[in-house]
Computed example of a mutant assay.
Amino acid sequence: MIRAGLRILLAIFYAAAGYFHLAAPEPFLQIMPDWVPMPEAVVFWTGIAELLGAVGLLQPWSQPLRRAAGVGLALYALCVWPANINHFTMDMAREDGGLGLAYHVPRMMAQPVIIWLALWVGGTTDWPFRHRN
Rank of each mutant, 00 (worst) to 15 (best):
L29S: 15
S62T: 08
G72N: 02
D91A: 14
V36K: 12
L78A: 14
G53R: 04
A83C: 06
A83V: 01
V36L: 02
E26V: 12
L57Q: 04
V36R: 09
W81H: 14
F28V: 03
A68W: 03
M32L: 14
R66D: 00
G47C: 09
M90V: 06
M38P: 12
T46N: 05
L73N: 01
L78S: 13
A74G: 10
L29R: 12
V71W: 01
V55W: 01
L65C: 06
F28Y: 15
L75V: 07
G72S: 05
N86Y: 07
G72L: 07
L58Y: 01
V71L: 08
T46Q: 11
L78C: 12
L65F: 00
M32T: 12
E26H: 13
G70K: 02
L65Y: 02
H87S: 08
V42G: 09
P64K: 05
W35Y: 02
V55G: 08
E50W: 08
A74H: 07
A69R: 02
L75A: 08
Q63W: 08
A41L: 15
W61V: 13
R66C: 02
M32D: 09
Q30D: 14
A83S: 12
R66M: 10
T46E: 02
Q30K: 15
E26W: 11
F44G: 11
D34A: 15
V36D: 05
I31Y: 04
N84D: 09
P39Y: 09
F28I: 03
I31K: 04
L29V: 11
A54Y: 12
W35R: 04
Q59Y: 09
A24K: 14
A69C: 10
G72V: 08
Y76V: 03
G72T: 13
S62I: 04
E40S: 13
Y76M: 11
L51R: 07
W61T: 11
A68H: 00
L29W: 06
F44W: 13
P82W: 05
G72W: 09
S62Q: 10
M38D: 12
P64Y: 08
F44V: 04
A68Y: 04
V55E: 01
A69W: 01
E40R: 15
P39I: 03
A74N: 02
G70E: 01
P25I: 00
Y76E: 07
P60M: 08
F88K: 10
L52Q: 07
W81K: 14
A77I: 13
R67D: 04
A24E: 15
A54P: 03
G56Q: 04
G53I: 05
P64E: 02
Y76W: 12
L52V: 14
R67K: 13
I48L: 03
A41T: 14
A68M: 11
P37T: 15
P27S: 02
R67T: 08
N86P: 12
W35E: 01
C79L: 15
Q63F: 06
P37E: 09
L51C: 11
V36T: 10
A49H: 00
